[in-house]
Design a binder for these strands. Structure first.
Lengths: 345, 345
DNA sequence: TTGTAAGCGTTATCAT
DNA sequence: ATGATAACGCTTACAA
């Protein structure tokens, strides 16, 4: 029993005594064909275990039905859920996805994009590592491209992301309203636009309340749980006082929370914490984490929709305006914030 | 500026005045070619922005360089990290992956497999939803196939998974040794072999200690955080006494933990909890979660290695033995277990 | 209603 | 060292 069994349209043709053409017509349910022959062919194909060869179909169609997905880090639950949303939305519309993980590395990202190009993907979905990518414009001229969760700074490229400014604003304002006064920001890497906007939101909330942002309370490049933990250790160990923190992600918040507890700080009495993303674990952390909820699934779905629209309108006059969507974040108050006003007014 | 710019080997041939053949040779760095022409061709290709068309290459090579990955649920951090491991290991060896999420649905899984077949993937990696899949043997005759994290019951199909029996045993034994006496098992769906083995390990530990497994303490089909929470509610609300629980996943444990705290139970004094998987959040839950650590990354890597070995040896006499690997789990004691002996002896 | 033949982009074989 | 040609499996004009 050898492993070579790939049944082709020709094998079927031979079997039933019709031409490959007729077989193809039957398989694709074309009109001009006798019901009888069609039935026979379909039955035979089934029996022989025929599966259409997508590679060959592609070769003809000059379309692959594949969407390339370059994710920054699939080990991050936020991204893995977006990916799931993408896969599901794509599948609903008959597309498959090729997944590459850039692992937050610009080099791997570039390599991944090249591969996607070679793969002839019909479109590309990407959560860029670096928002200042000069050559991406060129690529997007040839290939429908939508960035998700992050985007390219100042470029006319479709994206779906969270209104980060609003997110940062909401979180900070919430902390202020609850009496916290020295609010730190553990921001992400500033080369990411989302981090830049988060910072703006943070500043806006503080300024609006009559305060003034204190540069010493602003940290950037804190991305992982571990980094959050270590940053927490360092900050809480220094003589810099603070009574609240807003972080770039729930991960970071969780890490910080651990550091805070190790420093014997009470949450939320001594220190308020507000994260970002609303991953499922927020309700299950040591102290349930207040955070900014983000419609993760929708990010993937929207991104796929926009991309497929663009793919399907590719042939028309290309006057499609750039489609830049910002989904609304929402504050979710749990226990890690909001008690300051009672304990200290 | 139209979006049609796909440069082919023929375009290059025309440009440099050589045949497509020569261009191909230059591109593939074949020996029989003048250095001079090669340089010219390479330079021209670069300038024209040529990218090899993988679809066409595949058509010729009758190999795709693609591995199909059917994951049970990419929103589950355990799986998403395995997927990351797979993608990374595959990329290292020059393979791309097509990802499909079966969403724990047998129907979607079947559909996904069909698609992979059509995609002509060189091999298939799958975490099966249902371990009793009769037609998978047929498929594995045509297509190199390795299951990961889960496997097909009694079939001669390669797999990489955790020694679940040992995992269940380790966790239960640990609880027993720490003085817990009524240990419940919140098991996964019993149609999964891993759940069956987990149960065996649980029973083995109890029997070994001179006890007898109590069917009333064994629950199955508890898979998600939410289900863990609701199961916890129900169990703790009943008059059935218990002082410890071992769960099918950390998720379930986290859900159960929440229910336990809502029932004002002290962890680990009143109730001990041991999860499974060791997802990164274990250290960050309300009470740091004891669990059974699983070498996640290695699962993906091993699976890819085995699969590629099989792919590369496909042509040889197919006397390769089935390669069934069980990676060793390891007990990780945190705070949610192990104090019973002190508080109650 | 069915068959013939061309072509998608690439590479391998066989000439030259 | 280079070129012509065939072939991979499929779909689609065009013929019959």
């Amino acid at each position: 029993m050898n492993k070579k069994k790939k049944v082709t349209i020709e094998d079927i043709a031979e079997e039933v005594g019709y031409s490959t053409n007729t077989v193809s017509r039957a398989l694709n349910d074309k009109s001009e064909i006798k019901q009888e022959t069609k039935d026979l062919i379909l039955k035979t194909a089934e029996e022989m275990g025929y599966r259409p060869n997508r590679v060959a179909q592609r070769m003809r169609a000059q379309k692959t039905g594949i969407l390339g997905v370059v994710v920054a880090n699939n080990a991050n639950p936020f991204f893995s859920r977006v990916v799931k949303g993408i896969e599901s939305a794509a599948a609903d519309r008959g597309y498959n996805i090729i997944l590459k993980d850039s692992d937050e590395s610009p080099d791997k990202e570039e390599e991944a994009i090249k591969i996607m190009l070679s793969e002839q993907v019909d479109g590309l979905l990407i959560s860029p590592v670096n928002s200042e990518k000069s050559n991406i414009t060129k690529i997007s001229e040839d290939l429908p491209l939508v960035s998700f969760a992050r985007h390219f700074k100042g470029l006319k490229i479709d994206f779906v992301l969270i209104d980060d400014l609003k997110g940062g604003y909401l979180a900070t304002k919430h902390l202020i309203e609850n009496g916290y006064q020295e609010i730190a920001l553990l921001n992400g890497p500033l080369n990411e636009l989302s981090a830049q906007e988060r910072l703006e939101g943070y500043k806006k909330a503080i300024t609006e309340s009559g305060g003034e942002p204190d540069p010493e309370l602003i940290y950037d490049g804190v991305l992982t749980m571990d980094q959050g933990y270590r940053a927490g250790k360092k900050i809480l160990d220094s003589d810099r006082t603070l009574d609240a923190v807003h972080t770039f992600s729930d991960f970071v918040a969780l890490g910080f929370m651990k550091a805070a507890e190790e420093a014997s700080l009470k949450i939320p009495e001594d220190i308020g914490i507000v994260g970002f993303d609303d991953i499922p674990f927020c309700s299950y952390s040591r102290v349930p984490l207040s955070t900014v909820h983000v419609p993760i699934k929708e990010i993937g779905e929207e991104a796929v929709n926009i991309l497929l629209d663009r793919i399907q309108n590719q042939s028309k006059e290309e006057d499609l305006e750039t489609n830049q969507v910002r989904l609304e974040p929402e504050l979710v108050v749990r226990s890690s914030s909001g008690a300051k006003q009672f304990s200290e007014t």
